[in-house]
Amino acid sequence: MEPVTLTVNGATRRLFVPPQRTLLETVREDLGLTGTKHGCELGECGACTVLIDGVPILSCLTLTVNATDCEIVTIEGIGSMTEPHPLQRSFGEHGAAQCGYCTPAMILTAKALLDRDPNPSEETIAEAIAGNMCRCTGYLSILSAVAAVTEENQ
């Protein structure tokens, strides 16, 4: 067991984890934050994306011990049913979630983009989500949902 200290959605969490535990397992199984999904566990689908120090990272490829002292944000950390993040509202309004399984990762990836570049072109948005698979929507509604939240469109 290794001691780790993580800031998860603003709260400091101290835990002991086996060295081989991935951040995906930690957020879902140790911290109960099941909004983070998994579709392959091998870095191929993007569904497990979380933000580490503001940057989208695949939690299935990240050892929890290696994330120690980092600031982690999961989908639960950016908005709630009563106070959703603008992207969370926009995804609904644009039909950007069908089964919803890729959605938390898509939203976090898009949020990291908008935090860096509040006015991305459609091409930039597409490049940013090119590591996130969605099997349902065909992505177009996702592009619109993100574009609607750019500074220009707000």
């Binding site: 879902r28 199984e29 909004g35 999961t74 908005g79 509202r89 995804f91 039909g95 979630a97 919803g100």
Partner: peptide, 23 residues
Amino acid sequence: RAAPRVDALAQATGRVKYLDDLS
């Protein structure tokens, strides 16, 4: 009417419980 899904916000906030989310 082109309206959001009734579960849109639950999906977008990560609250929908899929099978592996149950324990």
